[in-house]
């Protein structure tokens, strides 16, 4: 038995929640790059704002709580690129393997 009636996790308007945290972080280079990849892939017709959001929603509430904003975004952009046929999962896996062999930090690997 479930009391689910169709309201999905991301549709949170009106839900009870705590006080607002005003802490702010500066965006890192890799986050700015994720942002740019989303904007440019959209302008090229490989994805759109709705397809970005659709994958984010389907990732579920756990991803929202545990992953950072741009971690979720790169997951969604990547899913969208695979769906659009921009590259295959195999090509992505090979590329990621090669990248991790370049070094232990983002600076060394990028």
């Amino acid at each position: 038995m479930t009391d689910f009636f169709g309201k999905r996790w991301h549709d949170m308007g009106g839900d009870p929640a705590g006080t607002i945290d005003h802490d702010q972080h500066d965006f890192a280079l890799w986050e700015k790059r994720v942002d740019a990849l989303m904007v440019l892939s959209s302008s090229k017709g490989l994805m759109n704002t709705d397809s970005l959001r659709r994958v984010l929603e389907d990732m579920g509430p756990e991803a929202y709580e545990k992953m950072t904003y741009y971690e979720r975004w790169i997951a969604s952009v990547t899913q969208n690129m695979i769906e659009a046929g921009a590259f295959s999962p195999e090509e992505l896996a090979t590329k990621m393997e090669e990248i991790t062999s370049r070094g232990d930090t983002y600076g060394a690997a990028t």
Partner: peptide, 12 residues
């Protein structure tokens, strides 16, 4: 996820 960003960027 950073590795994925580099990979997606380079593949595109």
């Amino acid at each position: 996820w950073q590795t994925m960003e580099i990979a997606v960027r380079e593949l595109l």
